[in-house]
């Protein structure tokens, strides 16, 4: 497979997954603010902080009001990680490999893009209630995952797109966990407020994991929720599940037996999976959940850089990664 094609497939799915997850952020925050009277401005500011792009936001907007934050995250063309920008990038990547992907996949990516463009023309509706639009985006994202699973050959190209999807998902699930940290959990001992149950529940709902969590753990305890989102082996949006899925695709690409590696991307990802496999949620809380998320995101960036040099023909790991978050 052409390096350029592998690169485009990897980024196409990363951007699609990213757009879907941003809609999940917005949706969860929307529900959180509804359930938490007062202090709304601050809450929307947390949304920007978890993206790591606060400086960029402040250059362009006066304050963290709902309207500005929603505009920034959804439709700001100048912000490379807005949903609109992600869709545009996903579509451009898809266009460049249109002959490789199925017609169904291309047409849905195209249609998805137009859905968001149409949404950007009437943002007022979303300032009042973004829920429905977020849900549409989430469903489209999942549908595209289904279409690529059902219509693409499960060969090299599909595996590259799968690595992209799951690395992005692991990163974003860690950021969804971070929402909670920024909003009301600067300290693990700070548990048991009146709204706590509701808010951890909203977090799980953002990952489509509330029912699965209930079946696994029943009542909501912060440590269990974090454990579920980081370590659950069967929940398809947990961090460890996602990283293991990415690793299995990477092994299929290089033909490496489990537990060994042939290149730096595999080495780094395998190491990260092993580390997570042999740790537990108590350790994570001891070291700080936020710090854990931070480190994880940096590790994932490193793995993505290694993908670039090993497979996509990028010059070296020192080079700036233009597409990286």
């Amino acid at each position: 497979m052409l390096s350029r094609v592998a690169d485009a497939l990897y980024w196409m799915t990363r951007y699609l997954e990213r757009a879907e997850n941003i809609s999940r952020f917005i949706d969860v925050n929307w529900h959180l603010t509804l359930d938490q009277p007062g202090g709304e401005c601050q809450d929307w500011g947390a949304m920007v902080r978890i993206t790591g792009d606060t400086a960029l936001f402040l250059e362009r907007y006066d304050g963290f009001d709902r309207q500005s934050v929603i505009t920034f995250l959804m439709f700001d063309s100048a912000y490379p990680h807005s949903i609109l920008s992600c869709l545009r990038a996903a579509r451009e990547n898809a266009r460049s490999v249109r002959e490789i992907i199925s017609n169904d996949l291309w047409e849905q990516v195209n249609d998805f893009y137009h859905l968001v463009v149409d949404g950007s023309r009437r943002p007022e509706v979303l300032y009042i209630n973004p829920h429905e639009f977020c849900q549409q985006i989430r469903l489209r994202g999942m549908m595209l995952g289904g279409i690529s699973n059902e219509t693409m050959n499960h060969g090299e190209g599909w595996h590259f797109s799968r690595v992209g999807r799951f690395l992005e998902r692991a990163d974003k699930t860690s950021r969804i966990l971070d929402v909670k940290y920024f909003i009301l959990l600067p300290d693990i001992s700070f548990v048991g407020t009146a709204y706590d149950d509701v808010q951890w529940g909203a977090l799980l709902r953002a990952t489509s994991g509330l029912n699965a969590y209930r079946q696994r753990h029943g009542r909501i305890f912060p440590a269990n929720v974090a454990d579920f989102l980081v370590f659950d082996r069967d929940f398809p949006r947990s961090i460890l599940f996602s990283l293991n899925a990415a690793l299995s695709s990477l092994s299929s690409i290089s033909g490496t037996p489990p537990g060994t590696f042939r290149n730096r991307a595999e080495q780094r990802l395998g190491k990260l999976c092993a580390e997570l496999t042999y740790t537990d949620i108590a350790t994570v809380f001891d070291d700080g959940l936020h710090e854990f998320c931070d480190r994880l995101q940096m590790d994932i960036n490193g793995i993505s850089d290694a993908m670039g040099t090993v497979f996509f023909g990028y010059p070296s790991e020192a080079s700036p990664t233009a597409q990286e978050q």
């Binding site: 052409l2 390096s3 350029r4 592998a6 090299e156 590259f160 690409i253 497979f311």
Partner: peptide, 17 residues
């Protein structure tokens, strides 16, 4: 695209994964 191709030992080759 042109950037996918390179001439090596007299043959035209494409850069793959």
């Amino acid at each position: 695209e042109g950037r996918d191709l390179v001439v090596q030992d007299g043959d035209v080759c494409m850069r793959t994964t």
